[in-house]
Design a protein around this nucleic acid. Structure first.
Length: 938
RNA sequence: GGGUCGCUAGCUCAGUUGGCUAGAGCGCUUCCUUUACACGGAAGAAGUCAGGGGUUCGAAUCCCUUGCGACCCACCA
């Protein structure tokens, strides 16, 4: 086959991929989807080493495009997969596609709005069907892009996150949790995005530090009885036993000092009031708040039980400004005496902390902000319908008119935002389904502590444990139609003809998987479907279970996965949940190892973002430089867990490597015209040397793959292919051509490179005249036989050659156009390889001296080689020589200094000391010789 | 407030039980159209390993500390 002088990836990649895919090489030899399984592995027997190697692809959005992170994920996962496939494992790389609940919903809703419609015009079932169609229309790009990256995944086993088996498994788990009492419906404050009108889990909220204001508002003490503060006539319960010592004068003084800073009035006309805001007097109390608009929902004012300033006010009532309500002053640890005035208004329905305080003191949850983010009637007629922003301004104006606004401090505080649209999250009171995570987290922590999962990077394990320790109950309800419906139905009415008593006895909610029906009838009672869908992380936490076809009866030979490879950014959202759910459902951890890759940054180490315009599209690079170049380029200089820069340069360098390999193959193939069936043997030291180097590469790659050090693997591969195989071995073969060995070493090199550069290695494999089959299914190389002493000798020869080249290059113009050769004296190494030395040094001749040395002697211990140049040229060499002597002298001094230290000689390892001694001897000899040469010139 | 990570050549990064003269790619300089490759070959310049202290015969590596940067968690009203 005639090959072009440079590798053109776009000519081969798609054909190669099709050939792989249709050959069945991507599927495990015994696909779990099609066979009867005899049973899983014994769970207790740790010594069982299985042949299966399983890895799942974190499912990319089914209707999206791949971004740079996916590119990295696939480069890593596919390299692992191909490596273990070559090693002979029964390998299963399982692809997936994500319905991406909220992400897709946002895109769809935007499209809907663009044509003048809103979600509120349709029923959930209608919307679900519409989004389904929308996704189907958009689908396909992602899968083509995964193919373009060369992922050797089993496409027949692709799992979509809304596939029947996924839904069935999720419902099964939900039912088990429901029966185990781990699921409850609770009215709680949830993170709520008023724009998208759905709740979020804590981790889906983005906290940003922002400037804001802290306003001091005067609440006047009222003598009257409460009219709304407590419900059910229950006595308020003390928050915490007041056993703490009161704050010291010093603490209070520092607290007051803080308040005194930056006090100014909003209108700016008056000079800033440089005095401390008075926290209280017998007739009023000043509260500090960042959200005056929630005032209408206030149920109390809290002060710290140990705060001397307010001791006398606890139990009294204040008049709530702008309303006719009165609320109590309560004592609660939540109030921080050092912040603001130390008195805080309590709005249980609109603040997470206040909600907790409210629970402790039996306060009412009065909502004043609606689901749409606008004020409700409960805030008063004047304010109803206003946005929170508008309302805030109006409230501030009113308060100021009434002289109740005492101060405004500029502060920086953390504000929660919707991670998708940036809207400020409104803590909202909602009835939602929650998972009691206590047990789940505890089991996960136990298994993690036992070291059942190995983390790369290691430190993430403790980070995860810390997260699990503080985990709060998990809200799994989402108010969007695109997702797996929650299989819960609410009791509505008794069907006519059945007894009413029976109706009362039935539970309010029942579990049922008939979520395609809006209403169902069970035991004479009608139930209405809950309209919410699951948090996508709830279903995706089952990913290792569903993709490996794990069952209660048989387990799966592919579960647990060998490795979970994903982004460090979803350690909590996904990895943590997979571990909890895997253990809960199967009793086993879902994977044995976790490799977390870091964020891919732009070439200057900045985060990629559309607004900055620095987004790198992996497909652009694939098109420009080829898939292999992209994969090598993104693995280069990257280590686990770290956010690191990525630039086109590394892809260019990798493209060059592909081309180098291509040309290596071209050269050998051009030599291999004639059939040769001779057996493989090493006949000279260059051959022994390359066998040793290839064997080292093999060992290194094995070590690197085991420890997920991809960058080092790529680095080693690069230098072996280029610096060793091409620059030295092939150059040394130009006059020899040991074909059987050339072929064998090339095959080994191609196979070892295949996991990282699959396309070019396969293309070459197909093009070579003597190879059969496909490289993807070849066997990982065995060790090669070589003579280590001979290999070591080649290193000496290389040094000699390098030295000769260096001196020649240093001579520069003085030898231009002049025929230069090498002369050797008593030097067996050079004598026995004179032709090779001549070739490698590109000199005109290499021959023995006629007995009298002349020219420039190469500065090498144990060598006697001269560059045969005229005396005139030798004189030009003087400066170089002098510099050389100084340099070696400095090196010698350093070594001598080491030996002069008695502690070094005494305490350092013997071999090290011996090496130092040897170094000194060599350098002394070298200097002696160089000086001699210098004398000769003079 | 708590935590994690990083700071090594102009740029991006290696450097894993502390030990030869601290490496690579890109970039830069000089030379070479040598019959696989200019996406090439040969040679070269370039580093107070963030600062300070400590442990050690020996520290980029271990400990302490300061600074700078990135990120995560958290209920600062």
């Amino acid at each position: 086959m005639k090959l072009t002088s440079s590798y053109e990836p776009d000519k081969f990649e798609s054909d190669i991929y099709s050939a792989w895919e249709s050959s069945g090489a991507f599927s495990p030899t015994d696909s779990s989807r099609t066979r009867e399984r005899a049973g899983g592995l014994s769970k207790s027997d740790e010594s069982v080493t299985r042949d299966e190697y399983s890895i799942v692809m974190p499912p990319p959005n089914a209707n999206g495009n791949l971004h740079i992170g996916h590119g990295l994920t696939i480069a890593i996962e596919d390299s692992l997969t191909r490596y273990y496939r070559l090693k002979g494992n029964n390998t299963w790389y399982i692809p997936g596609a994500d319905h991406a609940g909220f992400e897709t919903w946002v895109v769809y809703e935007r499209a809907l709005e663009a044509v003048g419609h809103t979600r509120f015009e349709y029923s959930r079932d209608e919307l679900y069907a519409k989004v389904w169609d929308f996704v189907q229309e958009q689908r396909g790009n992602m899968e083509l892009q995964v193919r373009a990256l060369g992922a050797s995944c089993a496409w027949n086993d692709l799992t979509f996150t809304l596939d029947e088996n996924v839904v069935a498994r999720v419902y099964k788990t939900f039912e088990k949790m429901w029966n185990d009492g781990m699921i409850y419906r609770g009215e709680k404050l949830v993170n709520y995005c008023p724009k998208h009108q759905t709740a979020f889990a804590d981790i889906e909220v983005e906290h940003l530090d922002e400037p804001g204001h802290l306003w001091d508002i005067k609440y006047e003490v009222a003598g009257a009885e409460p009219n709304c503060a407590f419900r059910d006539n229950k006595e308020p319960q003390p928050a915490v036993e007041n056993t703490l010592t009161p704050f010291s004068e010093h603490e209070l003084a520092s607290a007051r000092k803080k308040q005194a800073v930056k006090v100014s009035f909003d209108d700016g006309d008056e000079a800033p009031v440089e005095k401390s805001v008075i926290g209280s007097s017998p007739s009023y109390i000043v509260v500090s708040t960042t959200r005056p608009e929630t005032l209408f929902g206030d149920q109390a004012v809290a002060v710290n039980p140990n705060d001397e300033r307010y001791k006398d006010l606890i139990g009294k009532f204040v008049k709530l400004p702008l309303t006719d309500r009165t609320i109590p002053i309560i004592a609660d640890e939540h109030a921080d005496p050092t912040y603001g005035t130390g008195a805080v208004k309590i709005t249980p329905a609109h603040d997470f902390d206040d909600f907790e305080v409210g629970k402790r003191h039996n306060l009412e949850n009065l909502r004043v902000i609606g689901d749409d983010g606008k004020m409700l009637e409960t805030a008063g007629k004047e304010y109803a319908g206003l946005t929170t922003e508008e309302c805030r301004q109006k409230v501030l104006n009113r308060l100021e008119e009434q002289g109740l606004l005492l101060g405004s401090h500029e502060i920086s505080h953390s504000v929660a935002h919707c991670y998708k649209c940036g809207t400020v999250i409104e803590p909202t009171l909602k009835e939602q389904w929650f998972i009691d995570v206590e047990k789940l987290a505890k089991i996960a922590i136990d298994h993690l502590k036992k070291g059942e999962i190995k983390f790369y990077p290691e430190n993430k394990k403790q980070v995860l444990i810390n997260y699990l320790k503080g985990l709060k109950d998990w809200n799994i309800s989402r108010q969007i139609p695109w997702g797996i419906p929650i299989p819960m139905f609410k009791k509505t009415e008794a069907v006519s003809g059945t007894g009413k008593e029976h109706f009362d006895d039935t539970p309010d909610w029942i579990f049922d998987t008939r979520t395609n029906l809006e209403t169902i009838e069970v035991g004479g009672v009608k139930y209405q479907r809950d309209e919410d869908t699951f948090d996508t992380w709830f279903s995706s936490s089952h990913w290792p279970i569903v993709t490996t076809d794990w069952t209660e009866q048989h387990g799966s030979p592919f579960y647990p996965l060998n490795v979970m490879e994903t982004g460090a950014d979803i350690l909590f959202a996904w990895v943590a949940r997979m571990i909890m759910m895997g253990l809960y459902v199967t009793g086993e951890v879902p994977f044995k190892e976790v490799y977390l890759h870091g964020l891919v940054l732009d070439s200057h180490g900045k985060k990629m973002s559309k607004s900055k315009g620095n987004v790198i599209n992996p497909m652009d690079l694939v098109a420009k430089y080829g898939s292999d170049a992209f994969r090598l380029g993104i693995l280069r200089g990257r280590s686990a867990g770290l956010a690191q820069a990525f630039s086109e340069d590394s892809v260019v360098a990798s493209r060059n490597l592909c081309n180098k390999l291509w040309n290596i193959a071209r050269l050998i193939d051009s030599w291999a015209d004639a059939e040769s069936n001779e057996s493989i043997s090493t006949d000279n030291m260059g051959e022994d040397w390359i066998c040793r180097e290839l064997d080292n590469l093999r060992k290194h790659l094995e070590k690197y793959m085991k420890s997920y050090r991809f960058a080092e693997a790529v680095e080693d591969l690069y230098s072996t292919i280029w610096d060793k195989y091409a620059d030295w071995f092939l150059e040394s073969q130009k006059g020899i051509k040991n074909l059987p060995l050339l072929k064998k070493t090339l095959e080994n090199l191609l196979i070892m490179a295949h996991p990282f550069m699959p396309f070019v290695t396969e293309t070459i494999w197909q093009a070579l005249s003597w190879t059969d089959g496909m490289i993807i299914t070849q066997k990982w190389p065995a060790s090669l036989v070589y003579d280590p002493i001979s290999a070591e000798n080649f290193e000496r020869l290389m040094l000699t050659v390098s030295e000769a080249r260096k001196v020649l290059a240093g001579l520069g113009d003085t030898v231009k156009g002049i025929s230069v050769g090498l002369l050797y004296g008593d030097d067996a190494l050079v004598a026995d390889n004179s032709e090779l030395v001549r070739q490698l040094t590109r000199t005109d001749f290499v021959k023995p001296t006629d007995g009298t040395p002349k020219g420039i002697r190469l500065a090498l211990p144990g060598r006697e080689v001269y560059l045969d140049v005229s005396e005139k040229v030798v004189k030009h060499y003087k400066d170089q020589l002098t510099e050389r002597i100084l340099k070696v002298g400095r090196e010698l001094d350093a070594l001598n200094a080491r030996m002069l230290n008695p502690n070094y000689v005494q305490k350092a390892p013997a071999n090290l000391v011996a090496e130092t001694k040897k170094g000194i001897t060599e350098k002394e000899e070298l200097i002696k010789r160089l000086k001699l040469e210098l004398e000769v010139i003079n």
